[in-house]
């Protein structure tokens, strides 16, 4: 396959960026999207130019490092899949592909397609944990958890913190991320002690980081590579209401 790439190039946080056009030649349809980018970058390097920078780590869809908006869709639109697990067979020969970084004031562009997503880390650091000492491994059924709650907590815990929800939301809202993190702890018995304190603190940090607000468009849920449900945002709203009344 031969493709035309329009890639966002930006030297650093304060520089003005622009799109650069590259040709991706002889791409094998079974390559992943990131492998295709590697091929293009090697050619750019061979020509003596600076390759474009993009984030990647595990390349198996579990780390949340890759963060590309491909033709207007975070992770490229193959449902429930990160960009690293998107394969070139989903594109067609001769296609032009536009690749942009996540766009949010809370995720400033560090270079080319790489954004600084430490705002998520600060949200987690403000309450996304359980501070009780857990001691040794407890007996299997010492702490009963119902199957539906365990399943739901696991669904929320599937969030890899990639930030696609923020990238897709027209308001650059981080509600789905915060909802997933608040819910996976709030659904389990170990998370109860700090449940309402946690939600209030995490929402406060989310607001301070400059993310937008949820207008329930559902774009976050549609692009989430882990298919986190909008239902968790409802849960977050509920917990925050209780949390703010308890304060």
């Amino acid at each position: 396959m031969n493709l035309t790439l329009k890639v966002w190039r930006q030297k650093n946080r304060s520089a003005a960026g622009e799109f650069a056009t590259y040709q991706a030649r002889d791409i094998i349809p079974d390559m992943s999207f990131l492998e295709m980018l590697d091929v293009v970058n090697e050619e750019i390097l061979a020509q003596g130019h600076e390759p474009f920078a993009f984030d990647s780590d595990c390349r198996e869809g579990i780390c949340g490092a890759c963060s590309l908006v491909i033709n207007g869709i975070p992770h490229g639109g193959n449902k429930g899949v990160t960009a690293c697990q998107l394969h070139m067979r989903h594109f067609h020969d001769g296609q032009t592909i536009t690749i942009e970084p996540w766009r949010a004031s809370a995720f400033p562009v560090d270079r080319d397609l790489i954004t600084d997503r430490t705002a998520f880390d600060r949200i987690i650091a403000s309450g996304g944990f359980i501070s009780a000492h857990t001691g040794g491994a407890p007996d299997g059924n010492a702490l009963p958890v119902s199957k539906p709650d365990a399943d739901k907590a696991m669904d929320a815990a599937a969030c890899i913190g990639c930030g696609a929800c923020v990238a897709a939301c027209k308001n650059a809202s981080a509600m789905l991320f915060v909802a997933a993190k608040v819910s996976h702890l709030g659904l389990l018995p170990q998370g109860q002690a700090e449940r309402y304190d946690r939600v209030v603190k995490m929402v406060e940090t989310m607001d301070n980081e400059g993310f937008g607000n949820c207008t329930v468009t559902g774009a976050c849920e549609a692009v989430c590579p882990k298919e986190i449900s909008l239902e968790f945002i409802g849960r977050l709203n509920r917990d925050y209401l209780v949390g703010s009344l308890k304060k």
């Binding site: 329009k6 207007g72 639109g77 942009e100 004031s105 027209k170």
Partner: peptide, 19 residues
Amino acid sequence: ANKAARPVGYAVQKSNGSS
């Protein structure tokens, strides 16, 4: 706040399933 949260928009705009 929503406008301030995305000062630079996308070159390719998609609705991403929103109505």
